[in-house]
């Protein structure tokens, strides 16, 4: 386990407040529904399933960057990630006839990409699939809506949070990442993970709680240091 240097300065209250609000937001109705971008992609996929070949470029441009970003959280091997993105897009192309009317393409694409990455790892990759937290800090910051004026402090906090995220059980971490970092709705994340909406809410909630406890620890330490100083 990596040693953690805890910051000895006042914690950004707003970061804590944001995280607290996010805990409640897991059960929020807006997190149950796909965003407009996802709906646009669903419509594009529907047109593609009906035989409109030219729509594939739109699908690629909408899905590939999100898939690549998601996959790069688990491996530094860019070639492997590109291979998985390619395979995922080709799977979607080959299975377009199966796309059901009113279906959702984003969770489908994420589930295929996740499966192919796990399989490619099993087939012979030596690299351990683990979150590459150093790359994800800025996105974690954005997910927590950390204020720009507290950037240095918030970055430190986000670093701690990223470490905590890496320590979480896989199912909790992936649920959190899909919802907060990839922007999937709770229902979409549930589909990707093959589980129920309630289970995903619970997993994401546990992830939030774990991170809140990190913040609470930092807060307690900060108070102790303040008392010593005074």
């Amino acid at each position: 386990m990596q040693l953690v240097v805890r910051p000895s300065y006042p914690l950004p209250q707003r970061v804590r407040a944001v995280l607290r609000d996010r805990t409640l937001a897991v059960a929020d109705e807006r997190n149950r529904k796909p965003d407009p971008t996802s709906r646009a992609l669903d419509a594009a996929m529907d047109r593609y399933a009906r035989g409109e070949d030219s729509v594939f470029e739109e699908l690629y441009d909408g899905l590939a960057p999100r898939l690549q970003s998601f996959l790069l959280r688990y491996t530094h091997d860019r070639a492997r990630v590109e291979d998985v993105v390619q395979q995922t897009m080709l799977q979607i192309h080959r299975a377009r006839g199966r796309f059901i009317l009113g279906g959702q393409v984003v969770p489908w694409a994420f589930a295929i990409a996740r499966r192919l990455l796990i399989d490619s790892h099993r087939r012979g990759g030596r690299e351990v699939l683990a979150p590459t937290s150093d790359d994800g800090i800025s996105e974690l910051m954005a997910a927590l809506d950390a204020p720009a004026d507290d950037l240095a402090i918030a970055k430190e906090v986000a670093g701690r949070l990223a470490e905590e995220l890496a320590r979480l059980p896989d199912n909790q971490r992936v649920a959190f990442e899909l919802i907060k970092l990839e922007g999937l709705s709770v229902a979409e994340a549930a589909q990707v993970l093959g589980t129920t909406v309630a289970a995903v809410k619970l997993r994401a909630h546990r992830a939030y709680e774990a991170m809140r406890s990190v913040l609470a620890d930092l807060g307690a330490e900060e108070q102790k240091l303040s008392r010593r100083r005074s």
């Binding site: 399933a49 993105v85 080709l90 377009r96 199966r98």
Partner: peptide
Amino acid sequence: VLAEVARTPSPTR
């Protein structure tokens, strides 16, 4: 990807 898609047609719905 686009070249491969163009090269291998897939069945529609």
